[in-house]
Design a protein around this nucleic acid. Structure first.
Length: 702
DNA sequence: GGCATGTGTATTTTT
DNA sequence: TACACATGCC
């Protein structure tokens, strides 16, 4: 039953993989074969006869789950690894709530809104409460969502959260509170869940009397990856899921905890042994990824961290190549240097796909992207603006959402305003007339049994307050809805009547029909409609793979394509491309050659994080995560000066400081290089390197 | 009331 | 650069 692969594991890995029962904590340093260990354990459990669909594997991204399960599938003789429940907390919560949610009064057909939708709803409520026009500037909608989400995920008091993390909003606390109350109420009335609800209600489900046990009994084994980046609710969910049997394995590394802005807390991993008595702890310390010099530099960065689990990563991958610290004149030169290095490595046989450029914030790569395009170096960017955040994609999704859940107010609001002659005011009036707003929480029963009439039926049948200017566009819209739902103007479906599932077009046909309706609007509402139209076409392609509209919408919301090229067809994928990624999105990945750009104070650590020590410590871990992504070669770039934004013609600039995470003793573990320009500027011509570095160092000592 | 245009102002990271 | 808000025209 055990495959030969067991022999290829090191003793610590094997201990984790073959652990029989009871709680298991695996502290796995960067590159120590964590993924492999998890995949092997899944395979091992299946080989031992645990039914695959009674194994729950919680990961940070769906991609991670998919990779582990496909690896596990290759290891086990059983062909059932695909039946393992794998995915993010949010995706699994969604799935469980649709199955068991009715027991706690939830309706099965809720829609899930992403952060942008949540922000729009906050904004709507803020307007209604008249908080938009106060003397002082009220917190922006994204800030509101951030405050809300952090409070909920940390299970903390609002006042404390604002005080601590959003001090500039303290004065608006009353307004914020009022908005949140309405926000929560609105979501329930509209049968809409935000990301946080998926966790919140999952927890409620677990805590509920009968169904709680049923949910907990659903699984024999639970495995959680990246446990250092789980938050209070997620920790609580795990505890509740394990109330009947404690066969749970959590894997994590405190040195790589980088999601505290999402209320992740390291306490989950630190306190695990106390919360789960009898925990067996296994530590993985052998790094298989990086060369020894890269590891030495990374360890040195972490050595000055305030508190950490003591573990010393080691590697037997010797190399005489130290990581390189590259000083450039400015961002322009940084771009050039990066491109030069990349092409150098490419010529020496390292394909672009095995190289990555990492940075702190999404926009840090914009100038580099221009230069890469200029040089015809194809790239693929992770993090930053996503496909589904583009306005036109949201428009299309909103149309599908109202078909799915006719009480989804945000989506109505968005869709109606697309129509010619309809603005915010008219849209609101229409929403009211359609009966989208109801004061009944938890709409479990619909039209059956004398419930409210669906807004979709009203749209087709009722006289509505449509201003003359909007008449024509509105008529088109009516036709669209009629065709998609199969409802007729007198309010009856042409199949089974009175059910929530209309006898309309197939999903693909609906999307196609919507696109025909939407294309002209696209032209009117946005610039470069051609590109946007192509995106919509791609969406149509994806829709072909789905039969269920609900699945399609939810998948796009919970697991959005990371960028437009994710949607590219096979011929595109075969092409070699460079990876650009935020450090956060690079978590769990590895590349032969890694380039970290903007290693300046203010970028890493980010200006916004240095207010308190905890913030700086997290930035340190972030830098550590970035460094430990490298297998063979690591380059860190530091531009000496930054030009002040916007000034195209002005040369106003200021000198940057090298990131504080590379003090002299750590720098000694790097090979230090500078561009010719830097040498010229600092050395006044052709001086010896030593001299230049002395002068450079002077710049860095505060 | 709807919508185009202009102005001033900012808090990184993601499910 | 985007977004929130004010203004002015249809």
């Amino acid at each position: 039953m055990t495959g030969a692969w067991l022999d290829e594991l090191n003793p610590a890995q094997r201990e984790a993989v073959t652990h029989t029962e009871g709680p298991l904590l695996v502290i796995a340093g960067a590159g120590t074969g964590k993924t492999r260990t998890l995949a092997c354990r899944v395979a091992c459990l299946i080989d031992r006869g645990v039914p695959a669909d009674r194994i729950l594997l919680l990961t940070f991204t769906r991609r991670a789950a998919a990779e582990m399960l496909s690896r596990a599938g290759r290891l086990t003789s059983q062909a059932t690894a695909g039946h393992v429940w794998g995915g993010t907390f949010h995706a699994v919560g969604n799935r469980l709530l649709r199955i068991y949610g009715e027991a706690i009064g939830l309706s099965r057909d809720f829609t899930v809104m992403d952060q942008g939708d949540a922000a729009d709803l906050m904004n709507l409520i803020r307007g209604e409460l008249g908080l938009a026009k106060t003397k002082r500037r009220f917190p922006r909608k994204q800030t509101l969502v951030a405050i809300y989400s952090r409070t909920v995920n940390a299970q903390d008091k609002l006042a404390a959260t604002v005080q601590r993390y959003f001090p500039w909003c303290v004065e608006d606390l009353d307004g914020v509170k009022a908005i949140f109350e309405l926000y929560v109420q609105r979501k329930r009335e509209r049968n809409v869940f935000d990301y946080d609800d998926l966790l919140l209600y999952w927890e409620a489900l677990c805590a509920a009397d009968r169904v709680g046990d049923a949910v907990a009994d659903r699984f024999d084994h639970i495995l959680v990856d990246e446990y250092q980046d789980t938050n209070a609710i997620q920790g609580q969910i795990i505890r509740l899921m394990c109330k009947r049997r404690q066969d749970v394995m959590v894997v994590g590394d405190d040195a790589q905890s980088i999601y505290s802005f999402r209320a992740a807390t390291i306490r989950n991993i630190l306190d695990f042994p106390e919360l789960f008595p009898g925990t067996r702890t296994v530590t993985l310390e052998q790094n298989y990824r990086s060369t020894q010099p890269i590891l030495a530099a990374s360890n040195a960065v972490m050595a000055s961290a305030r508190e950490r689990f003591t573990k010393e990563l080691w590697s037997d991958r010797a190399s005489d190549r130290k990581p390189v610290l590259f000083t450039c004149m400015d961002e322009d030169e940084q771009c050039n240097s990066v491109c030069d290095r990349i092409l150098e490595h490419l010529e020496r046989g390292i394909p672009l796909q095995r190289q990555a450029v990492l940075f702190r914030a999404g926009h840090h790569s914009s100038q580099l992207e221009v230069e890469l395009s200029r040089r015809n170096i194809p790239f693929h960017k992770y993090g930053g603006l996503k496909f589904v955040e583009a306005a036109h994609v949201k428009d299309l999704l909103a149309m599908l959402r109202i078909l799915e859940n006719p009480y989804d107010e945000i989506s109505w609001f968005r869709v109606l305003q697309l129509l010619d002659g309809v603005g915010a005011r008219t849209a609101q009036r229409l929403i009211e007339a359609l009966g989208v707003r109801r004061d009944v929480p938890f709409p479990g029963t619909r039209e059956n049994g004398g419930g409210p009439v669906s807004p979709l039926k009203r749209l087709l049948a009722d006289p509505l307050p449509v201003p003359p200017a909007a008449k024509e566009g509105f008529e088109q819209f009516r036709i669209l809805i009629r065709e998609c739902t199969g409802l007729s103007a007198n309010g009856n479906g042409n199949g089974k009547s009175g059910t929530a599932e209309p006898a309309g077009l197939s999903l693909a046909a609906q999307v196609e029909r919507i696109r025909a309706f939407y294309d002209p609007l696209l032209e009117r509402n946005y610039e470069n409609p051609a590109i946007r139209s192509r995106d919509i076409e791609q969406l149509e392609q994806i829709a072909l793979r789905y039969r269920s509209r609900s699945r399609f919408i939810t998948d796009l919301t919970l697991d959005p394509p990371t960028s437009t090229s994710d949607l590219a067809q096979p011929p595109f994928l075969e092409e070699d491309y460079l990876i650009l990624s935020t450090i956060h999105s690079a978590k769990g990945c590895e590349w032969d050659v890694v380039h970290i750009i903007h290693a300046a104070d203010g970028m890493i650590p980010s200006d916004m994080a240095v207010a308190d020590e905890a913030g700086v410590e997290e930035e340190r871990r972030l830098f550590y995560v970035a460094m430990t992504r490298a297998k063979d070669r690591l380059y860190v770039y530091f531009p000496l000066r930054y030009y002040h934004h916007g000034a195209r013609l002005s040369d106003r600039h200021s000198y940057a400081q090298l990131t504080r995470f590379l003090p002299a003793p750590v720098r000694a573990l790097f090979e230090q290089r500078a561009t010719k320009l830097v040498e010229a500027e600092l050395g006044g011509g052709r001086r010896a390197h030593v001299d230049i570095h002395k002068r450079l160092n002077r710049l860095w000592e505060d």
